[in-house]
Design a binder for these strands. Structure first.
Lengths: 243, 243
DNA sequence: AAGTGGTCTAGACCACGAC
DNA sequence: TCGTGGTCTAGACCACTTC
């Protein structure tokens, strides 16, 4: 086998991973190619099986190889492109781009979930929700329009928060961290309201990010954020393992 | 510590991972919380340090915890939401939704990269490129407009492919697998050409996916795909470790 | 100096699945 | 049946960083 031996002084298991990645990404080992057995790699690198096994296991996690007992390890067939998108908190995003952050609460209602609310939360039960619409500004210019529902049953503390000064996204991130979430990214033509709030001509293409956050399977919040499509885009890289 | 002991009959290292995940996602262990030392977890689970260490290492990879020598392991502070988006091949996406797939080559040029081409490829060198525009149809209805550049220096085989019948995305996926890629997702108002090709009113909000694929750091191809924003959206879930 | 995590070893037994 | 990967052990030494 080819030992390109990346990064001479890094730990052995990382070198093994990097070597195999290189062979796959360079096209030398095509999809379906059987890579050496663990016991062969032990001899090649002069190390124990545990070291080899850990390296290969992480390649499985990253989706680069598949392993089958008795048959060996094979370069996987990539069916799709995938990308990891980071969707930062709007406030953090504005601040980190050296602009001043502004926040305006537009509406706040506390109500029993209506039909639309239940659809957004993905729950049939008639819970109480806090419905918030607000606007984020960067250097005084409208940056994003946010429309959020908070499930009061799941996040009772939200009842006593003063959302006239605290952006709900930032508060939730600080107080209800590490939730599971699913996202939907789409685009729309701004309607009259949205255009007015974002200071755009009606019909401008806008980027929409919707997110539902859950904890223990229970939905805590749903949010729809709308951005000026001419100024905002999302970028992601697909890096394999981060050696 | 709390042993919620998920999945009784799964391997021990996965149970350890799942237990710690549960404590973090449920909010019981907030960001900054110091989780038990490896040697404590050995006692708690009655296993060797290697088993504990492997479990914790994978939690580091998933971004859920951070570890510092001498101090211990801590629940990480989530700065951003992240999502894994799958961006399937357009043909595969249409076929899997039970619709008939159609493909039309619109233009094909082979030329020395001009200024715009070089920008798109992110390379200053004046290489030869194949520039393709084409249209994907689902059940005969325009589905996506694709504008692609292929770097001939990196993908010489592309010179002899008949792109009048073969969609370039599908060919590249089959023949140049396992490239690295980066993506950009944005939206635009369809201009006259785009509207005509997609069969939409001019000015309709459209979703745009741009992708550059590399191999060994060398750019192989750049593509811009445009979809009807009213019908197309991207969805992603953030699953932590896949236990 | 002391204690944490980082890495590795040389074994072991088991589970699965092709044959 | 038998060879592969899956899991685990009971050690070991090292690197780093705070004390």
């Amino acid at each position: 086998m080819d030992e390109k031996v990346a990064e001479r002084h890094s730990p052995l298991n990382q070198r093994i991973r990097a070597d195999i990645e290189l062979n796959i990404l360079s096209g030398k080992w095509p999809p379906g190619f059987r890579i050496p057995f663990e016991r062969e790699l032990m001899d090649i690198y002069g190390c124990s099986r545990m070291t080899v096994h850990n390296a290969l296991s992480r390649l499985v996690e990253s989706g680069l190889i598949e392993r089958r007992r008795r048959l060996g390890s094979f370069v996987a067939y990539p069916g799709t492109h995938a990308t990891v998108l980071k969707l930062p908190d709007v406030k953090a995003e504005i601040v980190s781009s050296q602009k001043s952050y502004g926040y305006e609460l537009l509406t706040l209602n506390r109500r029993v979930a209506n039909k639309d609310d239940s659809t957004r939360l993905g729950e049939a039960t008639r819970t109480t929700v806090i419905a918030i619409t607000c606007r984020h500004l960067a250097d005084g210019v409208p940056f994003a329009f946010e429309d959020r529902l908070i499930n009061v049953a799941s996040v009772p503390e939200a009842s006593i928060v003063d959302f006239t000064t605290t952006p709900p996204s930032s508060w939730l991130l600080m107080h209800i961290p590490w939730t599971e979430s699913d996202h939907r990214i789409s685009c729309i033509d701004a309607d009259a309201d949205q255009a007015r709030i974002l200071g755009l001509p009606e019909g401008t293409a806008c980027l929409v990010i919707e997110r539902r956050t859950k904890r223990n399977g229970q939905i805590m919040s749903q949010v729809r954020q709308i951005f000026d499509g001419r100024k905002h885009s999302l970028q992601g890289t697909y890096a394999l393992s981060n050696i």
